[in-house]
Each structure stands twice: as structure tokens, then as C-alpha cells.
Simulated scan of single mutants.
Amino acid sequence: MAPIRLAIVGVGKIARDQHLPSIAGNPAFTLVAAVSRHDPQIEGVPSFASLDELFASDVKVDAIALCTPPQVRYELAAKALLRGCHVFLEKPPGATLSEVEALRALADEHRVTLFASWHSRFAAGVAPARAWLTERDIRKVQIIWREDVRVWHPGQAWIWEPEGLGVFDPGINALSIATHILPRPFFLTAATLSVPANRAAPIAADLTFTDGAGTPITMDLDWRQTGPQSWDIIVETDAGTLRLARGGADLFLPDSTHSDGDVEYAGLYAHFASLVAAGQSDVDVAPLRHVADANLRGTRISVEAFED
């Protein structure tokens, strides 16, 4: 089979750090174009200022990877799907749930692949954690996701806008793991969102969830962490405690440890290639639904202004 001719749309930090190396390392893809309103220069690859400009050119494209902020993603994804292109959506898949559902319907109508990616699900410890938990009685879950926004998201104004998610931008990674590894669906019961006086999106959040069995699940998100960063999920079971650390890269079980390097985006692109080959889509909105629920049900409190 010929390689999938892929264009990358949005050439920022995540594209350069993760997408480009993963594309280069997967023979199922060949990078044929880059699209960015700013400086999309990638050596040896044609560059375009807009998706319209790319589609008006003679460059043949089978698929696009959308790495733009979520606020502008619907229009771009819809345009690509209407042209018969397969679409890889960086997380979160859209600014709203309704947008993503509309894109899913559009992909089905035009018989192309839509992949709403959740990179943290492909961290090394996640699959074995999911397998281990299927046979356990889960008693308590703690999610602790604390990092320094100035280190990980410096100067990214879009992230503080209403559709930018704020602290839920990293927090949705934790939710993507939790919704994947826990055997029962869970739902929000209460939330407190701490919003800086000069911002629209939260800088911290405390959430409580439960499931059909009454399991207590808590989530502590904070972008004001300094020093050591925390990306941990702790699950207490009848057979001992499971802990995922470093965002799922390290798994600690009562009798074993699983750890590996940065394999998330390689796994995403392998999955995308398999979906295209099979003529299927993968559009799971469960993590985004929990964020929407937090904004719907949560109590917003004003905290001190935040400046980069």
C-alpha cells in the first residue's frame, strides 16, 4: 500500500516536538505539506498559509493532522472531510461536544476516517493498567495533576479563553486515561473551579466523581505547581494499589513495575494508519464530556489575577 499523503495544519510546539518525529518514524505516512498562518517552514516540505491555499495547489493530500487551537478546528476539519480527506484531531478534539458530533457525522457521510486522538492513552503504562483493573474490585481513585503553566504553556493566550479549557487542557489527559482504564463509567457530583480575576478559564479545579457502584473518585488539578510536577492516578483495589505516574508512562503494581520512554505519539500515528486502512473512525468524547460537565455543574470562584 502506498504511504498516506499527510499535511500538518498548525506548526507549533506540539507539532514540532511530537507530530513531526512520529510522522517521520512511521512508513505508513509521507509528509507532503505544512499549513500555518505564521512560520510553517519545514525543510523539504511545501508550506501554505491556509488550508484553502493547500487545496488549490497541485499537492495531493490524503489526510491532515490538525494541531491548531480547538477554537478554530471545526471549520478546518469540516473543510478537509468534505474534500474526502482523513482527519487526525489533536486533543481536545473541538471547542464543543456538538462540533465533534457534527464532524463525526460528516466523516461517516463521506466515508473517511476521523480520529479524535488522546495521546495519554498510548502512554506505556496505560494498557497494562487497564488489563489489571478489569479483574479488580475498585475502592477509591485519586487523580493528582499538578504542573507549572509557565513551564508547559508559556505565552499561550488562547488557552485562557473560554474554549481554551485552562487547567483542563492538561487535566483532560488525566480524564482520557481514567475513562479508558476504569471498568465502569463515572460521572461528576461536584466541582470547584478557580478562575483568575483576569482570565476566562480556570487555573485550578477540585472535582469529585462516582460510578454506579458508588466508588469515590477525586481529581485535583492545579496549574500553580512549582518544583516537582505531578501527573498521577492512584487506584486502591481489593488486590492492592495501582499507581500511574508521569502521565501514564510509569505503572506501579503491587508485584511489578512497567515503564517505557515517550511512545505516545508513535502509538497515535500507528492507530491512525490502522483506522484509515480499515475505513473506520475513532471518536471518543468521554474526556471532553467530563470537562463540559465540570463547567456546567461546577462552582466558579475568583482567585488572584495571573500573568505570564
Rank of each mutant, 00 (worst) to 15 (best):
P287G: 01
S98N: 13
G44P: 15
R300P: 03
R73K: 15
D255T: 14
P228W: 08
R146Q: 14
S230Y: 12
S22Q: 04
V149F: 12
G166A: 04
K13V: 13
T241H: 07
D169Y: 14
R104F: 01
W223H: 09
A95F: 02
D169F: 14
E135R: 12
E236C: 05
A200L: 11
G84H: 11
I138Y: 07
E90N: 15
S281L: 06
N198L: 10
P216L: 05
A56C: 03
R111E: 15
A305N: 08
G267Q: 02
I143M: 15
L253W: 11
Q229R: 08
L253I: 10
G155N: 14
I203H: 05
F122V: 02
Q142K: 11
E99L: 07
V276W: 00
L6C: 07
D211N: 10
T189S: 12
L54N: 08
E161C: 04
D108L: 12
G10F: 00
K60M: 11
I177T: 07
V276M: 07
R243D: 02
G25T: 03
S194G: 09
T299F: 02
A127L: 15
G279I: 04
I172C: 01
F187W: 13
A294N: 04
K79F: 00
K79V: 00
G44K: 14
A78K: 14
F88K: 04
V100H: 00
I144G: 06
R73V: 10
R150A: 13
E147L: 14
I8M: 14
F168G: 08
P27Q: 07
A190H: 11
P92E: 13
I159H: 07
R243H: 09
S117P: 05
E135V: 03
